[in-house]
Simulated assay, not measured.
Amino acid sequence: MKRFLIICFLGVISMAGQASTITKDEAIIRSNLYSFSALADQGAFEYLGRLFAPKLTVDYSALFGGAPESVARETLMKNWANFLPGFDTTFHEAGQIRLSINGDQADAAMDFTASHWLGEQGFWQVAGTYQFTLEKAADNWEITSVKLTNPTEMGSREILGQAPLKAAENLKQRHHNKVNFE
């Protein structure tokens, strides 16, 4: 029993030491990147947009072809708002973040799985790695580029064309369910 307690005590000390190694900047970046997934799934585009620089580069060419695109964050949010809420449910599962900070610049990689459901049989899933670049902006870190790499897919892309047809109505319904606390 004594040995067990010593092992538990050493484990707690070890975890406490690891927890204190994160800096404030690392915490902000990690919070923003994990929020990236959750806010998209919740359709909270007005909050999701604040995670991005006013102008950023988006690169989904590994999945859909084409070339990287420079876009205003308002345009990106409008595009996502016209698409993602059209699914019955989405779940963007974020994995561990690998992070490197150099002054006011940061690079991060995060493995993810994004699942999309529509109707009884509609399902499409993409997994891969998001590579982010971020820049410090006052007391925040903004995403200046996001690139999807190493994608794998399951299900059918056919539902991607159907989702925009329901997006506006579904987003409107979600807005009705917001809690107003003011």
Score class of each variant (00 low, 15 high):
Lys136Pro: 04
Gly161Thr: 05
Gly122Asn: 05
Glu120Pro: 00
Phe132Tyr: 15
Ala163Asn: 14
Thr75Lys: 13
Phe112Cys: 06
His92Thr: 10
His116Met: 07
Trp117Ser: 13
Ser115Val: 07
Asp104Ala: 11
Arg157Trp: 02
Met110Phe: 00
Pro68Cys: 05
Ala72Val: 11
Ala138Arg: 07
Ala138Phe: 05
Asp88Met: 04
His116Glu: 12
Phe91Thr: 13
Ala53Asn: 07
Lys78Asn: 15
Leu99Ile: 08
Glu142Gln: 15
Pro164Arg: 03
Phe132Ala: 02
Tyr130Leu: 03
Ala44Gln: 11
Gln121Ile: 00
Leu63Gln: 12
Asn150Ile: 02
Ala62Gly: 06
Tyr34His: 14
Ala40Gly: 11
Glu142Val: 09
Gly122Cys: 02
Lys136Asn: 07
Leu148Pro: 00
Gly95Trp: 01
Lys136Leu: 08
Ala40Asn: 13
Ser31Pro: 01
Leu99Asp: 00
Glu74Ala: 14
Ser61Lys: 02
Asp59Asn: 12
Ala62Tyr: 02
Lys147Leu: 02
Ala163Val: 06
Ala127Cys: 10
Asn79Met: 14
Val58Trp: 00
Ser70Phe: 08
Asn32Ala: 15
Leu63Tyr: 13
Asn150Cys: 05
Asp41Arg: 07
Asp107Glu: 12
Leu148Gln: 04
Pro151His: 01
Ile28Lys: 08
Leu39Pro: 01
Ala62Phe: 03
Pro85Asp: 07
Lys136Trp: 05
His116Pro: 07
Thr144Trp: 07
Ser37Arg: 12
Pro68Ser: 01
Met110Glu: 10
Asn140Val: 09
Ile97Gln: 04
Phe83Glu: 11
Phe36Ser: 03
Asp111Tyr: 13
Ala109Asp: 14
Glu69Met: 13
Pro85Arg: 04
Lys147Gly: 00
Phe112Leu: 09
Asn79Arg: 09
Asp111Leu: 09
Asn150Asp: 09
Tyr130Ala: 03
Ala108Tyr: 04
Arg30Ile: 14
Lys24Thr: 14
Phe123Pro: 06
Ala109Ser: 13
Phe45Leu: 01
Pro54Ala: 02
Thr152Gly: 03
Gly119Thr: 01
Ile101Gln: 03
Glu135Leu: 09
Ala138Asp: 14
Glu26Met: 11
Glu142Pro: 02
Ala109Gly: 10
Phe123Val: 08
Thr133Phe: 06
Asp41Tyr: 08
Asp59Trp: 04
Tyr34Ser: 15
Asp139Lys: 04
Ala106Cys: 03
Val146Glu: 03
Lys78Tyr: 11
Gln121Val: 00
Leu76Asn: 06
Ile28Thr: 13
Phe87Lys: 00
Leu63Asp: 02
Glu135Ser: 15
Gln96Tyr: 11
Lys24Gln: 14
Ala106Leu: 05
Gly119Tyr: 05
Ile29Cys: 06
Pro54His: 06
Lys147Met: 05
Leu160Phe: 06
Gln131Tyr: 08
Thr90Gln: 01
Leu33Ala: 01
Phe132Ile: 03
Thr144Ile: 07
Ile143Trp: 07
Glu26Ser: 13
Ala38Asn: 12
Gly49Ser: 10
Thr113Val: 11
Ser145Glu: 01
Thr89Gln: 15
Leu134Phe: 10
Ala81Pro: 01
Gln105His: 13
Leu160Ile: 08
Ser61Gly: 04
Met77Lys: 02
Ala67His: 11
Asn32Ile: 11
Phe87Leu: 03
Glu142Met: 10
Gln121Cys: 00
Phe36Leu: 10
Phe52Trp: 12
Tyr34Leu: 15
Trp80Ser: 14
Asp59Glu: 07
Ile143Tyr: 08
Gly43Gln: 01
